[in-house]
């Protein structure tokens, strides 16, 4: 258990209360999430496990503000995501959350540095020069500064995923969401990425990682297992 989670009076960074996400209507309706309650503190590194169709991706989409609950409430850093209009949600995504995808999803016609600058452009953060400097700084921190001016297609999988993490950190969000971040990496690169995410959590950022990778749980501070849209288990991991 981290030091942050021991401070009981501090409000959680992420709070889900009675969250249900239903797809379809009538007899064809399926509850991807059914009455989920979850609170995550700042600095936690949470691994979300579960079989296919258990609701992992739906949970991640709700936390990222790219989907809304059918009922219940989702708060992230004090923002009621369930109540924000689309336009405000888009603005919030730019600064409130960083996303890391399984297939990296870097824009193929932008260089690594430009990919990192893009969220800052959308959020209109700083000047163009400041954005470029921050992008370089993040790439440096993630060990891919030498690849800053290269297009994603010329980078290895591990390098691409590091650039993707740098992009997720561009606007310094308090919450980092990673969807199967090691799914497309070899074991060595996968382990390095997990260590990186752990370090980010140790710096006080909340990291939520959806994964099938059993090895990944070893890096997490907490493991939440979903089954049929409900939280089946929620256990801290000793570090």
């Amino acid at each position: 258990m981290t030091a942050t989670s021991l401070q009981s009076p501090a409000p959680p960074l992420v709070a889900l209360t009675g969250v249900t996400r239903r797809y379809g209507t009538g007899e064809a309706a399926v509850d991807a999430l059914a009455g989920v309650d979850l609170a995550l503190a700042a600095g936690e590194f949470v691994a979300v496990l579960g079989a296919s169709g258990s609701g992992k991706s739906t949970l991640l989409n709700l936390l990222a503000g790219i989907d809304r609950p059918s009922s219940g409430e989702v708060f992230v850093a004090g923002q009621a995501l369930h109540a924000l209009p689309q336009r405000a949600l888009a603005r919030w995504r730019g600064t409130g959350v960083g996303l890391v995808f399984q297939f990296f999803q870097l824009l193929p016609t932008l260089t690594a540095a430009e990919n990192v600058m893009l969220p800052m452009d959308f959020a209109r953060r700083g000047t163009q020069r400041e954005r470029a400097a921050r992008a370089r700084e993040l790439l440096e921190r993630l060990g891919v500064a030498a690849q800053a001016d290269r297009l994603p297609g010329t980078l290895s999988g591990g390098q691409q995923q590091r650039v993707a993490v740098a992009r997720a950190l561009a606007n310094d969000p308090p919450l980092l969401l990673a969807d199967e971040p090691t799914g497309n990496l070899d074991s060595q690169n996968g382990a390095a990425l997990l260590a990186l995410l752990r370090a980010l959590a140790d710096d006080g950022r909340t990291v939520v990682m959806v994964t099938h990778d059993a090895a990944a749980r070893a890096h997490a501070s907490r493991v939440v297992t979903l089954r049929d849209g409900r939280v089946a288990s929620d256990v801290p991991v000793a570090t």
Binding site: I66, R91, R93, L99, P108, F122
Partner: peptide
């Protein structure tokens, strides 16, 4: 379309 999805996910408005 997928690139547009990514851009929206990292904060691009409509």
């Amino acid at each position: 379309v997928r690139e547009i999805g990514v851009m929206k996910a990292i904060g691009a408005s409509d």
